[in-house]
Write a protein that binds this DNA or RNA. Sequence first.
DNA 1: TGTTAGCACTCAGGTCAAACGAGTGCTAAC
DNA 2: GTTAGCACTCGTTTGACCTGAGTGCTAACA
Lengths: 344, 344
Amino acid sequence: MEILDRKYRILQAIIDDYILTALPVGSRTISRKYEQKLSSATIRNEMSDLEDLGYLDSPHTSAGRIPSNKAYRLYVDQMLQPIPLSLEDVAYIRSCFDQRSRQIEQISTRLARALSGVTHYTAAVMTRMPREEQIFSHMQLVPVADRRVILILVTESGAVTQMPVELDAAIDPDVLYTVSKFLSQRLAGCAMSRLHQALLEIAEGEPEEMSKLLKTLAAQDDDNMDTGSLVVGGRSNLLSFPEYSDVEKARNLLSVLETKDKLVSLLNTHGEMEITVRIGPETGMEELKDCSVVTASYRMRDGRVNTIGLIGPTRMQYGRVLSVLNQVGRSIYELFDSQDDEQK
Amino acid sequence: MEILDRKYRILQAIIDDYILTALPVGSRTISRKYEQKLSSATIRNEMSDLEDLGYLDSPHTSAGRIPSNKAYRLYVDQMLQPIPLSLEDVAYIRSCFDQRSRQIEQISTRLARALSGVTHYTAAVMTRMPREEQIFSHMQLVPVADRRVILILVTESGAVTQMPVELDAAIDPDVLYTVSKFLSQRLAGCAMSRLHQALLEIAEGEPEEMSKLLKTLAAQDDDNMDTGSLVVGGRSNLLSFPEYSDVEKARNLLSVLETKDKLVSLLNTHGEMEITVRIGPETGMEELKDCSVVTASYRMRDGRVNTIGLIGPTRMQYGRVLSVLNQVGRSIYELFDSQDDEQK
DNA sequence: TGTTAGCACTCAGGTCAAACGAGTGCTAAC
DNA sequence: GTTAGCACTCGTTTGACCTGAGTGCTAACA
C-alpha cells in the first residue's frame, strides 16, 4: 500500500512537472525536485512500472517520460488540488458581470476575453435559450415598413426574442396593437415549443384576414427563433504553447475554432450543469486529439443557459482552470443576488 | 522608351512570380518563364537597375530578388489586370445575399466565410449604421417586465434598433402604446443624432410623470445605440502562408485580429466608398508591416454601411481580390434591385 | 526485499566542415 | 545593346562527430 502511495506521488510529480515545462520528465528531475529521499534509480524503477500500467509514455528511449491521457484522467479525477486565484483574477472575472451591460452579446464577449486572459487558453462562450422550457408571456408586433413588421416575443422569465416578419398585406398599426394584445392573452402560459401549433389552432376560428396573419406568424417563428450566441476569445493564446509550434497543427486547431458546428457540438455536453473535463480523444474530435476541453454550464436567471469552454493542450493547468470556472459560477450567482436586491 | 517598357514588364513578371511562389525570383526564372527573347544576363542588368530604383530588394547576394512595397504600390496602381472569377466563385458570393436571411449578423458571417473561402485570406466584415445620416421614422415601447421595456427605433430607411430600458416605475401597456404613438408623431423626420435633444425638448412641456419617462428614454439611447457588428472569418487561412510559418509572427498577427479596436480602425477608411489597398506600413500598424489590407465599403439600402477588409501577406493576389470585391458590390446591387421588384 | 550505485547503451540535438547550387556582378566579345 | 562566360557569394544540405540527458540492467547493500 505504501508503494502504491509512492507510485501515486511520483506520477503526480511527473504530471505537475510536465504541465509546467512541456518537457519529458526524467527520473533525476523527480528525485531532485520532488522526492529527495529516493534516488533516481528507484524512481526509474517506479517509472518503468507506471509505463507498464499505461500511465506514462516515452517519446523515445533516451528522453524522459510524458503522462498518457490515462494519467491525465486520473490526475483530473483524483489528484486535483484546488488552486486559489489571485485577487486580481477574481476581480477581473467579477468585472465581466458588471451591472451596466445587460446585453448578452457583450457579457459573452467580455467573459471570453477575461477567461482567455486569466487562463491563457482559448475560451468559447455559448449562450442559448432552451426553448422547450420557456413559457410565453406576451408578444408585440411593431410596424417597420408597409408590409414589414417586427415580432417581439417575451417569455415569463423575461427573455426577449425579436424577428422580422414579412406580411402579405399592409396592416394598420392600431390593428397590429389590438392583435398583439389579443394574442398575448390567448397565448399566455403556452410553452414556447408549442407556440407554432397554438397559433395555427387560434387561426382556425378566425376570419380570413386574421387567419392569414396568424399563419404567417406561425410560419416565421420556427427558423429565426434560434437566438444563441457564440463568442470565442484568445485564439492567439494557443500559438504560444510549444505543442503548436508546428504551424500545420495550429492551423488545424484554429480551423476547428472557426467551424461553428464543431464548436457547438464541443460545448453541448448534454445539459449537465456541472463542469466536464474531456481529455484528448475524449473530445471525440480528431483535430483535438492532443487538446483538452473543459466545459461548464450555468443557468442564468432569465432561463438562458451559458456554456463556457476552455480549450488548451492536454497538459492543461486543470486545477487553475477549475478554480476559474468555479469563480465564474460564483460571480453569476452574486449577480443574481444583486438583481434581487434591486427588485425589492 | 522601349527599355522603360521592358523594365516595366520584367518588374511585373517578378511580382507575378513572387506572388505565386513566395520565393525570391532569379534572373534565369524570368528569362525562361516570362521573357524568353532575353537572356538571363540582360534580365540581370535590368533587375540591378530596378533594385537601384527601389522596386526590388535582395535578401542576400545569392538569392533572387523580391518586390519592395514600392513595387507592390506600382503594381496595384498601374499593372493590375482584372482577373475573371470562376462561375463557382460568383455563385458562392451571390449566395451570401440570399433573400431568406435578412438578419445582418447572419449575412456578415456568411459573407466573411465566403470571402475567406474564395480568396484564402482573412476576411473582416463590419456593419455600422452612420447615425448622423439616419432619419427617425417611428418608435415603440414594448413591455417586458414590470419596470423593464424595450425601446424600438425605426428609421425612414427601414433600419431597426432595439434596446432595453429600465423604468423608474411600472407603466400600463396601453399607456406605453399611446406614448409610443405620440412620440412617433412628434419626432417624425427628426435626425437620429438629434433624437436625444428632441426628447428632452418635448419633456419640457409635459406633466411630471411623462417628463420623467422621456428623460429616462433620452438618457438611455446614447450608449446602446451603437449597433455595429464585426465578424472575422478565415483566420486559419493566414497560417498556411510561408510568411507566417514563424509562429511568433503568426501569433502577433492573430492577436491583432482579436483586438476589436485595431480591427475597427483598420476598416475605418474614412467614409470613402471605393476600394482601398494598403500595403505593409501603409496600414499604419507595426504588426501588419508585412501584410496588405484591402478594404471596400458598400452602402446598403437601409442606410447601413458595410465595410469589408481582406487581410493577407503583402504578396497578395491583388487582381483576384479586387475582382472578388467588385463581385460583392455587384451582388449587393442585385439584391437591391430584386427587393425593388418585390415591392412593386 | 526494497533500495541504490554503477555502467553500458540509446538517441535527439548541436556543431562543424565540406559540398552544393542558385544566384549575382563583371568583363569581354558579338 | 545583348549575351556568353566566369569568378564569386552565400544560404542550404549533408554527414560525421560529440555531447548529454536519459534509460535498463545488474550487482551490491541495508
